[in-house]
Design a protein around this nucleic acid. Structure first.
Lengths: 200, 200, 200, 200
DNA sequence: TATGAATGAGGATTCATTCAT
DNA sequence: AATGAATGAATCCTCATTCAT
């Protein structure tokens, strides 16, 4: 008679240990032995719960995607105006948690790996598409149709670029500054697009 | 009686094979045996010329950095106006070669790895700093001091973001579109900054 | 309040699942997890009822030996003449069930394993000795003393050889032909022995 | 500049160690570590020369098949009459070497395994077919066409049966007796067939 | 300068066994 | 009586590195 919830607990322990290990040592430096050690569990449990390393990595990717998605949804729903909605997306993607160096290293590792793994790539695509379509939804409320796609893509690039450079620099804590920079650039782009689009 | 230049040839053969292997299989899927096979040489030569795998990887990173640097310098020197200089930097970083999926995979692999390797990180820093300082130099000719840093950083982020999303999407060939998008956004940001800065 | 007979039921379930697994995947491909899965029971039960894998294997071997023994006894008792008794033994050992490819694979697996396991070897010996002594009993009714041993051994070899080649060929359904072949050979051997033995 | 012949030497060392290990411990008790230890080489060499355990096992099976084949051919060519040719085949398959308990255990292990491995089964088939067709060739010189197939198959079964029971008994050294038994039975079967076939 | 044979450590995976419930 | 979670030893395989030639 297994205690209910123990499976969920073990899975989370292992996924968290995986995030921590990848964040610190990279994917290449992540062995099941090390993950198990950090989780305080035995190596055998990984196969038991995730059917091998690939399963563990996929579950880990799914987890960080879900966390980011939940954060984005929370902020998005609190926003009242189109500009606030765009800001909400920016802020969710550049939140304190997302700019944490350890988590950044995990994302980067998965992005690099996804280029060579169908399974991971498929999971990743969800993220990129969701970011883009949420942005597009908000941008469409502000600019002329036909312009929205490009603007949304530009903002998405800006977000990813800021995130990437921040992660590579290894210096956390400049989140507020980062977000302000993006907000300003977004305003400039939106204003330029609206002004141009409204020309008679 | 060694032919002169044979060392240089061997090094380039091995580095090119490394780029090709990482591009196709990722860093985790890159073994010295595979690199040697692609180069048509023996595994022993890697240690002979690069003193091990790390040396080979460092040399490979240095090589792709140098190639990007040379391209950027070439375009930069051909530009006549500040805006052209900014465009030159954008175009060099988003050139056909840089948006090639294989090369993109290599960059991504090195970025992910650099977070956990002092040697690679030090080499990488050169790139980020050079991109930023070149941009800063050009931007300073256009906007008020005190604004330039933020604008240069924004443009750098935009470039990296476009590059990242393009690499992750795996779809090459949209280079021209990508560059146009960045140029437009840069113009919007510059205009907004200049207008604001010129307010009395 | 355990139902009476549940132990016997469980044991048979597990043994039958073991036969099925070995027959399909061989001894090397047989894990307790797979056996339990096929039996629709939990892995823990194996240790509970058989005290580990070895115990399960021994019980399985004992079971198939017992089944063959019962079949042989049934046929033997129905036979009226010495020649019929010999035929009965042949037919029991080359019955439809014994030439079933799956069961053949199980026998073969156990024979190979028995060479390296005292416990299994001891169990196996029972079979060989029983086959031989039954044959000897029947043969003695026909040939001169001193000849019987060799004849009985020859027939035993013939039976095992036919069984082995049939099992290795993987083609079932030629049982009748196989038995006819043996009967004919046995007759030839018996006739030759009797004729020779009866020479003045 | 590799010494010529070193590859052949290493392969033989590993195959011989494999035969020795399987003979002593069975297939299930044969690990690459143990094989390497007996060969006085490192585990890595197995993959280097045989591309993994399966390759090693296949090479081992091929080796013992080739040895038996060579022995059979040697004896076969020395025989002058049809009966001698049949005896030659019997004697080769029941030679001192073939009835060696260790080698017997190896054969048995491979036969059991071949039922679950396409690769091994394909290699095995060569042996069974060769034994049968050689026998058929010799038998055809003696008995009426239409009878030869059954007689050849019977003799093949007799050989395999004697070999099997000898191997299972674990008692070597009764080779001469075994061979005599088969010769006698074969003569009885041939005589009976010829006599019957020559009936007007 | 170049080869590739040889090594052995490290990693993923499988599995029999144990045990708390 | 029965479960299946948990363990950790054992095994196969990969691979960077070394070295004799």
């Amino acid at each position: 008679m297994p205690r209910p919830g123990v499976e969920e607990l073990r899975r989370r322990q292992l996924v968290d240990a995986t995030i921590s290990t990848i964040g610190e040592n990279g994917l290449g430096g992540t062995s099941l032995a090390e993950v198990a050690r950090r989780a305080g569990l035995s190596v055998g449990l990984v196969s038991h719960y995730f059917d091998g390393k690939n399963g563990l990595l996929e579950a880990t990717l799914r987890t960080i995607l879900a966390r980011l998605g939940a954060e984005a949804r929370r902020r998005f729903e609190r926003a009242d105006t189109p500009r606030q909605r765009i800001r909400a997306i920016v802020d969710a993607n550049l939140s304190y948690e997302q700019l944490d160096p350890e988590l950044g290293a995990v994302w980067l590792a998965f992005w690099a790996e996804a280029l060579h793994s169908d399974r991971l790539r498929r999971i990743q695509k969800v993220n990129q598409r969701r970011l883009y379509s949420n942005l597009l939804y908000a941008v469409r409320e502000l600019v002329a149709p036909g312009e929205a796609e490009r603007v949304a893509e530009t903002v998405a690039c800006l977000i990813d670029g800021v995130w990437l450079r921040s992660t590579l620099s290894g210096q956390p804590g400049t989140n507020r500054q980062s977000r302000a920079m993006v907000h300003e650039a977004v305003d400039a782009i939106l204003d330029a697009t609206i002004r141009e689009g409204s020309k008679p």
